[in-house]
């Protein structure tokens, strides 16, 4: 199916949803009025009326929720499988996109950089090769689910994009570069581990923005050349968010904590030009960084 048809399909589903939502609201008002009038005429017991209202509205709320969920799932499905996939394939030949897979939790956990919380979600897996670097990329959401006074609370620890770039035969010992304003680090594991030392580099601006921990100070200096530090600073200013970088097992992990899901369907903007520009821009940012990596 052509992209154009996918946009039309989403537009059609959206219109149908809006129609159903209107009828649904009308149904709620009608039911409420009918029950109230009937209760007044028959002089019904108020407790019984409340019980009936609760039962009726529970059924209606459940239906309304399902309606909304069905709409978001259906549009999301078309958006990711047909639109995003096609835009990525057309513009970036060396990548594969799978919207329903993600990076495994254990891979991020192994970096020891982040508090992994109670829940982990990862979707929108992209595998590919830019400038001879194999990489994987995925949306990641790590959060704590807590119950406070019988109310469920969600505390986000990390939400954004995660990259793993294969450095091939380049041997580097573990070096962690953590944004100073990112507070959900796995600090305990760093401080408990005798292998990691805090490293101060010669770049004062870099030191003011990032904490660097390494198993070998010399390796930290080898990896973080002045050019590399400049690229990391540029990356931070480009994304305007918290960055986490980790060299481990000949791979470079990059976490971008921008609290965004870049492949999320935006209900208000179903314009072809806007969506394609957004996807291509995000992917180009990734491509430019990997292409200029030069490790």
């Amino acid at each position: 199916m052509k992209n154009k048809d996918s946009y039309k399909e989403i537009e059609k589903i959206k219109n149908e949803y809006q129609k159903q939502r209107k009828s649904f609201i009308l149904l709620v008002i009608t039911l409420f009025t009918v029950i109230s009038i009937y209760a007044i005429i028959r002089n019904m017991n108020p407790d019984l009326v409340i019980v009936i209202l609760i039962i009726v509205f529970s059924c209606i709320a459940s239906y309304g929720f399902k309606l909304g969920l069905f709409y978001s799932v259906k549009t999301g499905l078309i958006y990711k499988e047909k639109i995003v996939n096609k835009v990525l394939k057309e513009n970036f030949k060396t990548i594969e996109y799978n919207p329903w897979e993600g990076i495994e939790k254990k891979e991020i956990d192994a970096t020891n950089m982040i508090n992994m919380g109670t829940n982990f979600h990862s979707r929108d897996l992209i595998k590919g090769n830019f400038n001879n670097y194999d990489f994987v990329f995925s949306e990641v959401w790590i959060y704590n689910k807590k119950m406070r006074e019988n109310i469920e609370e969600i505390e986000t620890l990390f939400k954004g994009q995660w990259f793993i770039i294969d450095l091939k035969d380049r041997k580097v010992s573990n070096v962690q570069i953590c944004d100073k304003i990112f507070f959900n680090t796995a600090m305990d594991s760093i401080f408990n581990s005798p292998n990691y030392n805090k490293v101060e580099l010669e770049d004062i601006e870099f030191n003011s923005k990032f904490n660097v921990y390494a198993q070998s100070t010399l390796d930290a200096f080898k990896v973080l050349t002045p050019d590399m530090m400049l690229k990391i600073k540029q990356l931070k200013s480009k994304f305007e968010c918290e960055l986490l970088l980790c060299f481990i097992d000949n791979k470079l992990h990059i976490g971008i904590n921008n609290h965004k899901d870049i492949f999320e369907f935006d209900d208000d903007k179903i314009e072809k030009k806007y969506i394609e520009e957004k996807i291509i821009n995000e992917m180009n940012n990734i491509k430019n960084f990997i292409e200029n990596l030069d490790i």
């Binding site: 010669e202 100070t217 200096f221 080898k222």
Partner: peptide, 17 residues
């Protein structure tokens, strides 16, 4: 050469501090 550059930068950084 790369090793030497890193060692030199590490040394100079500590000397500067």
């Amino acid at each position: 050469e790369e090793e030497l550059q890193a060692a030199r930068r590490m040394y100079n950084s500590n000397v500067s501090i």
